[in-house]
Amino acid sequence: MSVPIRARAAVALGGSAVIGVAAFCWPLFVPAGGVSVEAPWLFALLLPLVLAVALAEISSGGMDAKAVAMLGVLSALGAAIRPLGAGTAGIETVFFLLVLGGRVFGPGFGFVLGNTMLFASALLTGGIGPWLPYQMLASSWVGLGAGLLPAMRGRVELVVLAGYSAVASVVYGLLLNLSFWPFALSAGSTSVSYVPGAPLGDNLVRLVGFSLATSLGWDVGRAVTTVVLVLVTGPVLLRTLRRAARKAAFTGSGLG
């Protein structure tokens, strides 16, 4: 059921993470001379390739029918409930599934789930665009991270998951703002645009200013809804997911 990560896939994941971080964060580090106009576009074009390579490496390690079916069903669930929250001030109904799914089925599953869930949702709603690879990469990190949390059970687990969801939601929001920032406001065009070569702190302040002005309400809303959903549905869902995982490990049904 789980999606194993072999050594080579781990290296590919690491490589994709480095490139991903560069693709997200370049406006913070860009030198005074600036980069060529093509740089942001180049990153937007390369990111799908990097994602594809990472996913191909993971799936070449073996994904059985049960894992694929479970991925499909969880992604469908995410895609089906995502429109419920869309448009209503930052109510984000996907993250808790991602966190719980990654938690129960492990980091490899979480990484792939982040990708398939966002991709399926974009396909269903006609929302494919240059932002999609950024969203997919960031959400797959959320799923991966949930799978890497240390083993624990009961109340502690729930609290840790809720805390993780809050942090992950805010970081996800910041990362996506960061990816959109240079496109929305070109360098130096407003006082909250990035300034090439400026000290990291200054650019961070501008980023926070940009976030405050644009999406902070959404980011906070996302964090709050995710934490609430994890706390409310967590006990039941973890039980249900683990039951499904157990059943898939050795199916007890099918008598009849």
Partner: peptide, 22 residues
């Protein structure tokens, strides 16, 4: 999509089939 992404694309196909059923 390239065949190397076959498993992932099946998962997405399944998701798109199952979403309306859900």
């Amino acid at each position: 999509l390239p065949a190397a992404l076959y498993e992932v694309s099946v998962a997405v196909v399944v998701a798109m089939t199952v979403a309306p059923q859900l």
